[in-house]
Design a protein around this nucleic acid. Sequence first.
DNA 1: GGATTGACGTCTG
DNA 2: GCAGACGCCAATC
Length: 108
Amino acid sequence: MPEKRNIFDDIYEVVALVPPGRVTTYGAIARYLKIKSARTVGWGLNALSGRLDIPAHRVVNSKGELTGSGSFDSNRPMADLLAQEGVLVKENRIPEFKTKFWDPSEEL
DNA sequence: GGATTGACGTCTG
DNA sequence: GCAGACGCCAATC
């Protein structure tokens, strides 16, 4: 019986699997984790927001907006981090979101 | 143990 | 096409 991975670990894996220069959405992660609500994903990201090892800045909402930016952007230039990876962020938003969008299912 | 909240998504009007 | 309401899962109070 495999250890029951907490939602945090699941999200951690998916977010960690996101290649540099790419971004994913809560819905994509939720679907990948077989979760019915994107909120749970956001909740997990929120818990992982305290870990610098987690590129939470690569996770945005369906609109390509850095929704979580308001939570830790104050001391976490996630937009700058994305820009360094090749993802341009304008006003906490990714104009090329559709181009930079990465789906966990694509990992397969 | 119940109720509320939270970095969202999808459906209906 | 835009706006509003509901739904969902997990954690905290």
